[in-house]
Structure formats: C-alpha cells, structure tokens
Design a protein around this nucleic acid. Sequence first.
DNA 1: AGGCCGTTTGACAACGTTGTCATCTTAGCG
DNA 2: CGCTAAGATGACAACGTTGTCAAACGGCCT
Lengths: 288, 288
Amino acid sequence: YRPNISARQLASKRSFVISHFYDNPNTDYLSEIYEGMRRACSEQGYYAVAEKLAPHKGSYHKALLDYLLRYDVDGVILSPPVSDDMAVMREIEKRNIPYALISPGKKKKNAINVFIDEKNAGRSITDYLIARGHDRLAFISGLDSHAASRQREAGFWEAIEAAQLPKKNTVRLAGDFSMQSGFAAFDMLMKKAPNVTGIFAANDEMAVGIIVAALGNGKKVPQDLSVVGFDDSPFARAMWPTITSLAQPVDEMAHLSTQKLIEWVHAEALDQSRFEFSTEIIIRESCP
Amino acid sequence: YRPNISARQLASKRSFVISHFYDNPNTDYLSEIYEGMRRACSEQGYYAVAEKLAPHKGSYHKALLDYLLRYDVDGVILSPPVSDDMAVMREIEKRNIPYALISPGKKKKNAINVFIDEKNAGRSITDYLIARGHDRLAFISGLDSHAASRQREAGFWEAIEAAQLPKKNTVRLAGDFSMQSGFAAFDMLMKKAPNVTGIFAANDEMAVGIIVAALGNGKKVPQDLSVVGFDDSPFARAMWPTITSLAQPVDEMAHLSTQKLIEWVHAEALDQSRFEFSTEIIIRESCP
DNA sequence: AGGCCGTTTGACAACGTTGTCATCTTAGCG
DNA sequence: CGCTAAGATGACAACGTTGTCAAACGGCCT
C-alpha cells in the first residue's frame, strides 16, 4: 500500500515540504546541508527543497515573502547569513511555521538552533598552530557581517593571549571568504609581516588562496609557511598540499535540524531548542 | 486568489515536482543545474528537488526505483553519469514520466536532449592553444566512462591533426576529473614530456591541480606552461592565475530542460527533442 | 449479571481543486 | 425568421486521504 501524497497533503493541510533558504555562494557547504536535509526528509517521506534568497535593502524579508505567498512549506531551515535576518524570522513566526537556524549569530528562542562553539573552535585550532611551534601568526578574517567569522577571530585572540605571544608579532588581515581574498591577504602579509610562519584562515577557500599565492611566490608549504583552514571542505582534502582544517559536521547538523523540525511539525510544539555539535581538527600536510 | 497546491495536485493527479537525479561530486555543476531548474519551476509553480543516486552493481536503476516508489514526480532530469544509464531511462519510460537528459553520451529518442557539441568544443579550445603558439600539447582526460570526456578528447586530436602537429610531441594523460588527478598528471608530464608547453584539461578542477602543482615546482603559469580548462567553473574565475576555460551555459541548459519538461507534461506530448547550446572560450590569465 | 468507563473500530464529511457533462447562449446560414 | 452548430457557462462528481464523531466492544468493579 502506497499512500497518495497529494491526498494526504490535502486532508492534513500539510505540504510535506521542508525548505532551506540561503544566500551563500559556497556550493560545497550548501550541498552538505542539502544532503543532510534530504536524508532526514527521505526517512519521513518529506520533500527537501532549497531556495536562494536575494537581499533587498539589506534584508531577505521580501524574497522570503514572495516565496511563502506562492508555496506551502511545513518547515524552514535558515543558514548564514539568512539565519541572522530578524525580519525573516519574524515573518516565519507570524505564520507559525516551525524553523531551524544553522549556525546563527544569536541563538533564538522558539526556534531550533544548531551550531558549533565557533569561538572555542577558533581557539583550539590556533592552539594547535602554537603547539606546532609557531609564534608569529596571522588571522585572515571572513566577512565581518558573518557572526561566525567574528567568533572564530575571538578564539584566535584568546589563544594568542593564553600563550602570551606578543601582539606586535600577530597580524589580522581582512578577507571575505573568497579565494581571491586569500591571494590578496598573502600579498598584504608579505608587505606587512613577512616573517609570519603560521596562518589561520577563517575558511578553507581563503586557505587555498593563500597556499596558491605562496607556491607562486616560491614559498614552501608547510616548511616556510604553515596554513590552517576552517570547514574541512572538499578543497582541504583535494589541495596540494592537503590542508589542515577544523571540521564541523554540517551534514549531521542539517540532518538533525530537519529531524527536529519534522518532530516539531508533528508534535505542534518545540521541546528542545539548542543543539551544539562538536568539532575536530583534521591534521593534514599544510600544517602537520 | 491563491490556488491550493495540494488540492490541485489531487484533482489533476500531478505532483508539480520536477526531480533531478545525479551522481556527480561537482557541487558547482550541481548548483548551476539546480538554479536553472529552480528558476523554471518557480515560473510555473513547480517544486524543484534533487536526489543523489548511488550506483548498485553498476546501475542507478535500483536507487531510482526506490525513489519512484516513494515519491510522485511529474518530470525527471538526468545529468551525467546518470544520463547514460539505459536501465534508468527504461524505468522512467515504463512509467510514462517525461524526462530530459543533460549532456547525454547518446541522444535519446522520446526524451529531451540538451547538450553542447563536446567534440567541437574540444576542438576549438585546442585550436586556441595552437593559435597561441603552442605545438607541444598534452590532454588530461576525465573518466573514460563519461562520454563527454571522450568527445572532448576526440576534438583535441582533430585539432592536432588539422594543425599537422607531430603526434610524438603530443601526450595524453589519464585523469578522473579530480584535482588530485591534476597533480598526478603534472608529475607524469614532467617525467614523460617535460617540454610540453600547452595543456588542455578536460575540466577546471584538473586544471587547478595542474597549475598548483606547477607553481609548487617553480614553474610559472602561463609563461612556462599554459593551461586551459573546461566548464568555466567558479574555480576558473577564482584561481590565481585565473584560468582560460571553455564555458557551457549549464544554468540555461537546465532552465530550458525544465521548461520543456513542463511543457511536455502539459501537452502530454513531446514536440522537439534536441536542443544544442553554443559554447564560448573565456580567455583568462592561464593562457592569455 | 449489570453498569460504567476506556478503548477500539467504522462510517462519513471535509479538504479545494479539476474535468466532465449538460445546459444555455450566440452567431451564422438557409 | 427559424434551425443548427459551435462556444460559453454552470453544476457536480471525483480525487484519496485525515479527522471527527458515534457506535460497538471489552474489561473491571460493584
């Protein structure tokens, strides 16, 4: 016996659709989220869909509204930077739609929050760099509008202080999560602090940029320059040298979000709202 | 007035879902397909979903069947390598589901075929390499199971012959579309044919691998070694040096597939079945 | 054995469209 | 002016579940 999905939808006034709203160009990250959602949805006979939202006057509210007026959705997942848009969350709450936030800047009541301890993660990978003997470090930031980047940086400075490394030997460069900003950061670094030996990039793409720029300038990685990244994206495994990176279980985070979202839909009530995931340093060639 | 989707589904016995089945790790490619689908679906109030199929005994048939038994789907899009799986296509035809093939190895009757002229594309980008003065060339293949890679190679050899370059100055190395295989190919190249000056990689990821390996070995790109890729993926724009690549309009191909698929669903008949798209060489720094 | 309560079973309306069939309208032609 | 054919309009069953409400059932206590 195969229940008819459409009839079920009509009778139960549910759509059996979970939708992920995003605005993040990192397709590896998005794919992992989608895969986690898909697995959870498949277990329950739900449909997983994804929708890119375009910002309008600094908010995703308009794009979201356009979508919600046209489609029925039982649950919503928001990933950064959409997971920090209050106007979006208000609209969703107004419609009483269960929703989950992946890695939000601020934890939200009455929503599922799925996250890692970004600051602590930044701290631990910086500690690792220091333990490998580096005392002249650089941090390459992501976009400051991403709360996660700021928190990772806070962890970086915490590690620097804890190790009592002189701040004058430490440099912070502004990036934007893109590979290009990694190249640019390397150039800046050579001008401002050529004697830095350990770099912590706020994501793997920038780490790739730095490594490629370093190789192109005749520097050996990790001999002349050690680099660690963040996210453990496919890049980190695929690059040459492979990249030491801090892994967060994005797939599982999306899976759990979706599971809990579906539970919420059924129970019509939210029980637990915060789910912290642990991270892991994946040691590879760029900082062995 | 907002029609109720569920009631419409039930009454019309349609699901308003278009599903993309894939098994390709290239998330950039997948995202472009999804985006094209999404746009077309949004125009018509359809849902776009994607499902990764796992091969079972060399075929995707089992995974597809599992899916079709659980979900209703109005139309199906297959991308390589699934678009070459006959068992999958038979199953879909048995159920009278309209379907579209993106870049299939063989055009299929009674299906929408959306493709570029892979051979001609391979030919033209090789012609470009030759026109830039290179006469010692290498081709880095993708997986031979991907028809597209074989066709690109055919175009490569056609260009070599047309330019009457001696075959002994030309080398073919086996890759698998991954960055790692690009690194490996560079190493092989240095052993087998260190005087090659122009490389055509069957996709951009391998081109990245080659370039990174070259930089790491003190070679300048493009001065010592010119590299061209294929697909014009985000890499090509983001790398340093940026990569000359052959662009195919994946987004538009997926968009048209979906549009035509929806038309087919409505008309209950397929009128035109073949849609060829044109390609473009995007000239960047790796082979200016 | 009878009455009470809790639980299982069964029947049926409701969900909001689509599509069919019948009726009504109108235009064209003899 | 009347008849026919074609097109516009309206009424209503059907789609296959869910959820409600009533009835039947069974166990337990008195």
